[in-house]
Write a protein that binds this DNA or RNA. Structure first.
Lengths: 204, 204
DNA sequence: GCATGTGAAGTGGTTCACAGCA
DNA sequence: TGCTGTGAACCACTTCACATGC
Protein backbone atom coordinates (compact mmCIF):
# COMPACT_ATOMS: atom_id res chain seq x y z
CA UNK A 1 0.00 0.00 0.00
CA UNK A 2 1.52 3.36 -1.04
CA UNK A 3 2.54 5.64 1.77
CA UNK A 4 0.27 8.44 0.56
CA UNK A 5 -2.72 6.14 0.65
CA UNK A 6 -2.04 5.24 4.27
CA UNK A 7 -1.67 8.89 5.22
CA UNK A 8 -5.01 9.78 3.71
CA UNK A 9 -6.81 7.00 5.57
CA UNK A 10 -6.98 9.03 8.75
CA UNK A 11 -8.66 11.85 6.87
CA UNK A 12 -11.14 9.49 5.28
CA UNK A 13 -12.05 8.07 8.67
CA UNK A 14 -12.61 11.56 10.03
CA UNK A 15 -14.86 12.47 7.10
CA UNK A 16 -16.86 9.28 7.53
CA UNK A 17 -17.32 9.88 11.25
CA UNK A 18 -18.41 13.47 10.71
CA UNK A 19 -21.02 12.49 8.15
CA UNK A 20 -22.20 9.54 10.23
CA UNK A 21 -22.65 11.77 13.26
CA UNK A 22 -24.92 13.94 11.10
CA UNK A 23 -27.12 10.97 10.44
CA UNK A 24 -25.79 10.16 6.97
CA UNK A 25 -25.72 6.42 6.37
CA UNK A 26 -24.54 6.23 2.80
CA UNK A 27 -22.53 8.46 0.45
CA UNK A 28 -20.90 8.32 -3.01
CA UNK A 29 -17.17 8.72 -3.62
CA UNK A 30 -17.67 12.24 -4.97
CA UNK A 31 -19.05 13.48 -1.66
CA UNK A 32 -16.50 11.71 0.50
CA UNK A 33 -13.60 12.75 -1.70
CA UNK A 34 -14.65 16.38 -1.76
CA UNK A 35 -14.84 16.52 2.02
CA UNK A 36 -11.42 14.93 2.29
CA UNK A 37 -9.94 17.33 -0.23
CA UNK A 38 -8.94 14.77 -2.85
CA UNK A 39 -10.26 13.77 -6.25
CA UNK A 40 -12.96 11.11 -6.49
CA UNK A 41 -10.63 9.00 -8.62
CA UNK A 42 -7.94 9.11 -6.00
CA UNK A 43 -10.39 8.24 -3.27
CA UNK A 44 -11.63 5.18 -5.08
CA UNK A 45 -8.10 4.14 -6.03
CA UNK A 46 -7.02 4.43 -2.41
CA UNK A 47 -9.88 2.21 -1.35
CA UNK A 48 -8.98 -0.24 -4.05
CA UNK A 49 -5.33 -0.34 -2.94
CA UNK A 50 -6.44 -0.80 0.65
CA UNK A 51 -8.58 -3.73 -0.34
CA UNK A 52 -11.78 -1.96 0.60
CA UNK A 53 -14.38 -2.91 -1.98
CA UNK A 54 -17.71 -2.58 -0.29
CA UNK A 55 -19.07 0.16 -2.53
CA UNK A 56 -22.43 -0.32 -4.15
CA UNK A 57 -22.52 0.62 -7.84
CA UNK A 58 -25.12 3.20 -8.50
CA UNK A 59 -25.47 4.46 -4.93
CA UNK A 60 -22.14 4.66 -3.11
CA UNK A 61 -20.76 3.38 0.18
CA UNK A 62 -22.45 2.28 3.38
CA UNK A 63 -20.44 4.35 5.85
CA UNK A 64 -20.50 1.92 8.76
CA UNK A 65 -19.22 -0.86 6.55
CA UNK A 66 -16.61 1.31 4.86
CA UNK A 67 -15.34 2.44 8.22
CA UNK A 68 -14.69 -1.13 9.29
CA UNK A 69 -12.80 -1.88 6.10
CA UNK A 70 -10.54 1.15 6.48
CA UNK A 71 -9.81 0.31 10.09
CA UNK A 72 -8.82 -3.17 9.07
CA UNK A 73 -6.55 -1.79 6.36
CA UNK A 74 -4.81 0.28 9.02
CA UNK A 75 -3.69 -2.85 10.79
CA UNK A 76 -6.78 -3.97 12.61
CA UNK A 77 -8.15 -2.91 15.94
CA UNK A 78 -5.38 -3.98 18.28
CA UNK A 79 -4.26 -1.29 20.66
CA UNK A 80 -0.84 0.37 20.53
CA UNK A 81 0.54 2.08 23.63
CA UNK A 82 2.80 5.12 23.44
CA UNK A 83 4.45 7.64 25.75
CA UNK A 84 5.43 11.28 25.35
CA UNK A 85 8.79 12.39 26.67
CA UNK A 86 8.92 16.12 27.32
CA UNK A 87 6.03 17.98 28.98
CA UNK A 88 6.91 21.42 27.68
CA UNK A 89 4.53 23.36 25.46
CA UNK A 90 4.89 20.90 22.61
CA UNK A 91 4.56 17.79 24.72
CA UNK A 92 1.44 19.15 26.39
CA UNK A 93 0.01 20.25 23.06
CA UNK A 94 0.51 16.80 21.58
CA UNK A 95 -0.92 15.05 24.63
CA UNK A 96 -4.05 17.18 24.46
CA UNK A 97 -4.40 17.18 20.69
CA UNK A 98 -7.26 15.31 19.11
CA UNK A 99 -4.72 14.39 16.44
CA UNK A 100 -3.09 12.08 18.96
CA UNK A 101 -6.35 10.61 20.14
CA UNK A 102 -6.73 8.13 17.36
CA UNK A 103 -8.56 4.86 17.45
CA UNK A 104 -6.36 2.13 18.80
CA UNK A 105 -3.73 4.47 20.22
CA UNK A 106 -3.29 4.76 23.98
CA UNK A 107 -1.19 7.44 25.62
CA UNK A 108 -0.04 5.77 28.84
CA UNK A 109 2.39 8.31 30.30
CA UNK A 110 4.11 11.68 29.96
CA UNK A 111 7.62 12.33 31.24
CA UNK A 112 9.78 15.31 32.08
CA UNK A 113 12.90 16.04 34.07
CA UNK A 114 11.87 19.49 35.37
CA UNK A 115 10.80 19.09 39.03
CA UNK A 116 8.37 21.99 38.59
CA UNK A 117 6.55 20.04 35.90
CA UNK A 118 6.76 16.53 37.32
CA UNK A 119 3.57 15.76 39.21
CA UNK A 120 1.40 18.24 37.36
CA UNK A 121 -1.51 16.98 35.31
CA UNK A 122 -1.59 16.94 31.52
CA UNK A 123 -4.43 15.44 29.49
CA UNK A 124 -5.60 13.53 32.51
CA UNK A 125 -2.19 12.05 33.28
CA UNK A 126 0.23 12.93 36.01
CA UNK A 127 3.63 13.88 34.58
CA UNK A 128 6.30 11.42 35.70
CA UNK A 129 10.04 11.83 35.99
CA UNK A 130 12.27 10.51 33.20
CA UNK A 131 13.82 8.10 35.68
CA UNK A 132 10.60 6.06 35.52
CA UNK A 133 10.87 5.66 31.74
CA UNK A 134 12.39 2.19 31.70
CA UNK A 135 9.93 0.78 34.19
CA UNK A 136 6.82 2.16 32.51
CA UNK A 137 7.90 1.11 29.03
CA UNK A 138 8.66 -2.43 30.15
CA UNK A 139 5.63 -2.93 32.38
CA UNK A 140 3.07 -1.43 30.02
CA UNK A 141 4.55 -2.88 26.85
CA UNK A 142 4.96 0.55 25.24
CA UNK A 143 5.63 0.37 21.49
CA UNK A 144 6.19 4.03 20.58
CA UNK A 145 7.98 6.94 22.23
CA UNK A 146 7.27 10.51 21.14
CA UNK A 147 10.24 12.78 21.80
CA UNK A 148 9.47 16.44 22.45
CA UNK A 149 12.38 17.61 24.56
CA UNK A 150 15.14 20.19 24.08
CA UNK A 151 17.68 19.66 21.33
CA UNK A 152 20.56 18.79 23.62
CA UNK A 153 18.53 16.25 25.56
CA UNK A 154 17.01 14.35 22.65
CA UNK A 155 19.80 11.83 22.03
CA UNK A 156 19.92 10.81 25.68
CA UNK A 157 16.18 10.24 25.71
CA UNK A 158 16.41 8.24 22.48
CA UNK A 159 19.09 6.01 23.99
CA UNK A 160 17.01 5.49 27.11
CA UNK A 161 13.76 4.54 25.41
CA UNK A 162 15.55 2.23 22.98
CA UNK A 163 17.34 0.60 25.89
CA UNK A 164 13.98 0.10 27.56
CA UNK A 165 12.62 -1.75 24.56
CA UNK A 166 10.81 0.83 22.44
CA UNK A 167 10.90 -0.07 18.73
CA UNK A 168 9.39 3.07 17.21
CA UNK A 169 10.29 6.72 17.80
CA UNK A 170 8.46 9.84 16.70
CA UNK A 171 10.94 12.70 16.94
CA UNK A 172 9.82 16.33 17.01
CA UNK A 173 13.31 17.64 17.70
CA UNK A 174 15.19 19.09 14.70
CA UNK A 175 18.20 16.85 15.27
CA UNK A 176 19.28 13.66 13.53
CA UNK A 177 19.06 10.99 16.23
CA UNK A 178 21.19 7.89 16.03
CA UNK A 179 19.39 4.66 16.83
CA UNK A 180 19.92 0.98 15.96
CA UNK A 181 18.63 0.04 12.52
CA UNK A 182 16.03 -2.18 14.15
CA UNK A 183 14.31 0.94 15.52
CA UNK A 184 11.92 2.78 13.23
CA UNK A 185 12.33 6.52 13.63
CA UNK A 186 10.42 9.40 12.05
CA UNK A 187 11.38 13.00 12.44
CA UNK A 188 8.76 15.71 12.08
CA UNK A 189 9.97 19.19 11.27
CA UNK A 190 7.22 21.57 12.33
CA UNK A 191 8.81 24.37 10.34
CA UNK A 192 8.86 22.72 6.93
CA UNK A 193 5.36 23.73 5.89
CA UNK A 194 5.89 27.27 7.14
CA UNK A 195 8.99 27.47 5.02
CA UNK A 196 7.11 26.21 1.97
CA UNK A 197 4.56 28.95 2.44
CA UNK A 198 7.27 31.56 2.91
CA UNK A 199 8.84 30.57 -0.39
CA UNK A 200 5.47 30.83 -2.05
CA UNK A 201 4.89 34.21 -0.45
CA UNK A 202 8.22 35.58 -1.66
CA UNK A 203 7.30 34.67 -5.21
CA UNK A 204 4.08 36.67 -5.11
CA UNK B 1 11.75 22.80 -8.36
CA UNK B 2 10.19 19.62 -6.91
CA UNK B 3 8.48 19.91 -3.58
CA UNK B 4 10.73 17.31 -2.00
CA UNK B 5 13.81 19.22 -3.03
CA UNK B 6 12.56 22.36 -1.34
CA UNK B 7 11.74 20.45 1.82
CA UNK B 8 15.21 19.01 2.03
CA UNK B 9 16.85 22.42 1.65
CA UNK B 10 16.30 23.30 5.30
CA UNK B 11 18.08 20.12 6.33
CA UNK B 12 20.97 20.83 4.00
CA UNK B 13 21.36 24.30 5.45
CA UNK B 14 21.41 22.89 8.96
CA UNK B 15 24.08 20.34 8.03
CA UNK B 16 26.20 23.01 6.40
CA UNK B 17 25.95 25.28 9.43
CA UNK B 18 26.84 22.47 11.82
CA UNK B 19 29.93 21.54 9.83
CA UNK B 20 30.95 25.15 9.36
CA UNK B 21 30.69 25.78 13.08
CA UNK B 22 33.13 22.92 13.55
CA UNK B 23 35.65 24.67 11.37
CA UNK B 24 35.01 22.68 8.21
CA UNK B 25 35.33 24.84 5.11
CA UNK B 26 34.82 22.36 2.35
CA UNK B 27 33.12 18.97 1.97
CA UNK B 28 32.15 16.49 -0.76
CA UNK B 29 28.57 15.48 -1.54
CA UNK B 30 29.03 12.09 0.13
CA UNK B 31 29.71 13.69 3.51
CA UNK B 32 26.95 16.27 3.26
CA UNK B 33 24.43 13.75 2.00
CA UNK B 34 25.18 11.24 4.73
CA UNK B 35 24.68 13.86 7.43
CA UNK B 36 21.41 14.92 5.86
CA UNK B 37 20.22 11.34 5.61
CA UNK B 38 19.89 11.18 1.82
CA UNK B 39 21.88 9.56 -0.97
CA UNK B 40 24.76 11.43 -2.55
CA UNK B 41 23.03 11.23 -5.90
CA UNK B 42 19.91 12.83 -4.52
CA UNK B 43 21.88 15.55 -2.83
CA UNK B 44 23.66 16.51 -6.04
CA UNK B 45 20.45 16.28 -8.03
CA UNK B 46 18.71 18.57 -5.58
CA UNK B 47 21.50 21.10 -5.92
CA UNK B 48 21.28 20.82 -9.65
CA UNK B 49 17.50 21.39 -9.62
CA UNK B 50 17.96 24.34 -7.31
CA UNK B 51 20.47 25.87 -9.70
CA UNK B 52 23.31 25.54 -7.23
CA UNK B 53 26.39 24.57 -9.20
CA UNK B 54 29.34 25.81 -7.24
CA UNK B 55 30.87 22.41 -6.55
CA UNK B 56 34.49 21.83 -7.40
CA UNK B 57 35.15 18.60 -9.24
CA UNK B 58 37.65 16.50 -7.40
CA UNK B 59 37.28 18.17 -4.01
CA UNK B 60 33.68 19.08 -3.19
CA UNK B 61 31.80 22.20 -2.12
CA UNK B 62 32.96 25.38 -0.43
CA UNK B 63 30.39 25.52 2.36
CA UNK B 64 30.09 29.30 2.63
CA UNK B 65 29.43 29.58 -1.08
CA UNK B 66 27.02 26.65 -1.14
CA UNK B 67 25.06 28.16 1.72
CA UNK B 68 24.50 31.37 -0.21
CA UNK B 69 23.30 29.48 -3.24
CA UNK B 70 20.79 27.44 -1.25
CA UNK B 71 19.45 30.54 0.46
CA UNK B 72 18.94 32.17 -2.91
CA UNK B 73 17.12 29.09 -4.17
CA UNK B 74 14.73 29.37 -1.24
CA UNK B 75 13.54 32.71 -2.55
CA UNK B 76 16.34 35.03 -1.59
CA UNK B 77 16.84 36.86 1.63
CA UNK B 78 13.73 39.02 1.77
CA UNK B 79 11.85 38.84 5.02
CA UNK B 80 8.39 37.32 5.40
CA UNK B 81 6.20 38.27 8.35
CA UNK B 82 3.74 35.86 9.97
CA UNK B 83 1.41 35.70 12.95
CA UNK B 84 0.19 32.85 15.12
CA UNK B 85 -3.48 32.74 16.07
CA UNK B 86 -4.09 30.69 19.21
CA UNK B 87 -1.82 30.89 22.25
CA UNK B 88 -2.72 27.52 23.74
CA UNK B 89 -0.14 24.82 24.21
CA UNK B 90 0.36 24.37 20.50
CA UNK B 91 0.53 28.06 19.65
CA UNK B 92 3.08 28.64 22.39
CA UNK B 93 5.08 25.60 21.36
CA UNK B 94 5.25 26.81 17.76
CA UNK B 95 6.15 30.36 18.79
CA UNK B 96 9.03 29.08 20.90
CA UNK B 97 10.20 26.39 18.51
CA UNK B 98 13.50 26.75 16.72
CA UNK B 99 11.70 25.17 13.79
CA UNK B 100 9.79 28.44 13.38
CA UNK B 101 12.85 30.59 13.75
CA UNK B 102 14.04 30.25 10.22
CA UNK B 103 16.14 32.68 8.27
CA UNK B 104 13.96 35.35 6.75
CA UNK B 105 10.87 34.57 8.83
CA UNK B 106 9.61 37.07 11.38
CA UNK B 107 6.93 36.25 13.92
CA UNK B 108 5.29 39.61 14.56
CA UNK B 109 2.37 38.74 16.84
CA UNK B 110 0.44 36.06 18.71
CA UNK B 111 -3.31 36.23 19.25
CA UNK B 112 -5.86 34.60 21.49
CA UNK B 113 -9.40 35.26 22.67
CA UNK B 114 -9.03 33.99 26.23
CA UNK B 115 -8.73 37.01 28.57
CA UNK B 116 -6.57 34.93 30.90
CA UNK B 117 -4.02 34.49 28.13
CA UNK B 118 -4.19 37.88 26.45
CA UNK B 119 -1.43 40.07 27.83
CA UNK B 120 0.86 37.22 28.88
CA UNK B 121 4.24 36.89 27.26
CA UNK B 122 5.15 34.15 24.76
CA UNK B 123 8.48 33.95 22.98
CA UNK B 124 9.17 37.58 23.80
CA UNK B 125 5.84 38.81 22.47
CA UNK B 126 2.79 39.97 24.38
CA UNK B 127 -0.30 37.98 23.41
CA UNK B 128 -2.91 40.21 21.77
CA UNK B 129 -6.64 39.79 21.46
CA UNK B 130 -8.08 38.45 18.20
CA UNK B 131 -9.89 41.75 17.74
CA UNK B 132 -6.52 43.32 16.83
CA UNK B 133 -5.95 40.80 14.03
CA UNK B 134 -7.06 42.99 11.15
CA UNK B 135 -5.08 45.99 12.26
CA UNK B 136 -1.81 44.12 12.84
CA UNK B 137 -2.03 42.19 9.57
CA UNK B 138 -2.67 45.34 7.56
CA UNK B 139 -0.14 47.57 9.30
CA UNK B 140 2.70 45.08 9.41
CA UNK B 141 2.08 43.60 5.99
CA UNK B 142 1.69 40.08 7.34
CA UNK B 143 1.88 37.39 4.64
CA UNK B 144 1.16 34.21 6.59
CA UNK B 145 -1.22 33.28 9.39
CA UNK B 146 -0.64 30.13 11.43
CA UNK B 147 -3.88 28.81 12.88
CA UNK B 148 -3.62 26.84 16.14
CA UNK B 149 -7.02 27.34 17.75
CA UNK B 150 -9.83 25.00 18.72
CA UNK B 151 -11.68 23.11 16.02
CA UNK B 152 -14.88 25.08 16.26
CA UNK B 153 -13.09 28.41 16.10
CA UNK B 154 -10.80 27.72 13.14
CA UNK B 155 -13.14 28.71 10.31
CA UNK B 156 -13.94 32.07 11.90
CA UNK B 157 -10.26 32.81 12.30
CA UNK B 158 -9.59 31.80 8.71
CA UNK B 159 -12.30 34.15 7.48
CA UNK B 160 -10.90 36.98 9.57
CA UNK B 161 -7.29 36.68 8.47
CA UNK B 162 -8.27 36.29 4.84
CA UNK B 163 -10.48 39.35 5.13
CA UNK B 164 -7.54 41.24 6.58
CA UNK B 165 -5.38 40.44 3.57
CA UNK B 166 -3.42 37.31 4.46
CA UNK B 167 -2.63 35.18 1.38
CA UNK B 168 -1.16 32.10 3.01
CA UNK B 169 -2.49 29.98 5.86
CA UNK B 170 -0.77 27.23 7.80
CA UNK B 171 -3.50 25.23 9.51
CA UNK B 172 -2.77 22.94 12.46
CA UNK B 173 -6.45 22.24 13.13
CA UNK B 174 -7.77 18.89 11.87
CA UNK B 175 -10.60 20.52 9.94
CA UNK B 176 -10.96 21.32 6.26
CA UNK B 177 -11.10 25.14 6.08
CA UNK B 178 -12.84 26.90 3.25
CA UNK B 179 -10.93 29.82 1.78
CA UNK B 180 -10.91 31.63 -1.58
CA UNK B 181 -8.82 29.89 -4.23
CA UNK B 182 -6.43 32.83 -4.21
CA UNK B 183 -5.36 31.87 -0.70
CA UNK B 184 -2.72 29.17 -0.33
CA UNK B 185 -3.55 26.88 2.56
CA UNK B 186 -1.66 23.96 4.03
CA UNK B 187 -3.01 21.72 6.74
CA UNK B 188 -0.64 19.87 9.03
CA UNK B 189 -1.96 16.80 10.81
CA UNK B 190 0.26 16.21 13.81
CA UNK B 191 -1.12 12.71 14.21
CA UNK B 192 -0.28 11.33 10.78
CA UNK B 193 3.25 10.24 11.57
CA UNK B 194 2.16 8.70 14.85
CA UNK B 195 -0.42 6.72 12.99
CA UNK B 196 2.15 5.54 10.46
CA UNK B 197 4.30 4.25 13.31
CA UNK B 198 1.32 2.57 14.93
CA UNK B 199 0.59 0.70 11.72
CA UNK B 200 4.21 -0.38 11.55
CA UNK B 201 4.09 -1.46 15.20
CA UNK B 202 0.98 -3.57 14.69
CA UNK B 203 2.71 -5.45 11.89
CA UNK B 204 5.61 -6.44 14.09
C1' DG C 1 -28.82 5.23 -15.31
C1' DC C 2 -25.40 5.81 -12.08
C1' DA C 3 -21.34 5.13 -9.42
C1' DT C 4 -17.81 1.68 -8.41
C1' DG C 5 -13.38 -0.67 -9.24
C1' DT C 6 -9.39 -1.01 -11.96
C1' DG C 7 -6.33 -1.68 -16.03
C1' DA C 8 -3.80 1.64 -18.76
C1' DA C 9 -1.79 6.01 -19.59
C1' DG C 10 0.40 9.89 -17.70
C1' DT C 11 3.15 12.47 -14.43
C1' DG C 12 6.74 13.58 -11.30
C1' DG C 13 10.56 12.32 -8.61
C1' DT C 14 14.54 9.31 -7.57
C1' DT C 15 18.40 6.50 -8.87
C1' DC C 16 21.85 5.29 -12.09
C1' DA C 17 25.87 5.83 -14.54
C1' DC C 18 29.00 8.38 -16.90
C1' DA C 19 30.87 12.46 -19.43
C1' DG C 20 33.50 16.34 -18.11
C1' DC C 21 36.53 18.99 -15.53
C1' DA C 22 39.78 20.33 -11.52
C1' DT D 1 42.42 10.33 -10.24
C1' DG D 2 38.30 12.11 -7.70
C1' DC D 3 34.05 14.22 -7.57
C1' DT D 4 30.61 17.06 -9.76
C1' DG D 5 26.59 17.80 -12.75
C1' DT D 6 23.09 15.75 -15.48
C1' DG D 7 20.72 13.05 -19.27
C1' DA D 8 18.47 8.75 -19.27
C1' DA D 9 16.37 4.81 -17.13
C1' DC D 10 13.59 3.61 -13.64
C1' DC D 11 10.02 3.59 -10.29
C1' DA D 12 5.83 5.06 -7.68
C1' DC D 13 1.94 7.46 -7.46
C1' DT D 14 -1.95 9.89 -9.71
C1' DT D 15 -5.28 10.59 -13.21
C1' DC D 16 -8.02 8.89 -16.86
C1' DA D 17 -11.56 6.39 -18.85
C1' DC D 18 -14.46 2.68 -19.22
C1' DA D 19 -16.16 -2.07 -18.39
C1' DT D 20 -18.90 -3.84 -14.78
C1' DG D 21 -22.79 -4.48 -11.95
C1' DC D 22 -26.48 -2.77 -8.91
Amino acid sequence: MPRGTTERMATYLRVIDTLASHGVATAPSTTLAQRAGVSAAQFRKDLSLAGATSGVRGSGYVLSRLRGELRRALGGFSRVRFVIVGAGNLGRALASSSAFRRDGLDLVAIFDVDPRVVGSEVAGLRVRHDSDLGQVIAEQDVAIAVIAVSEDHAQVVADNVVGAGVREILNFVPVALRVPTSVEIRTVDLGVELQMLAIHARRT
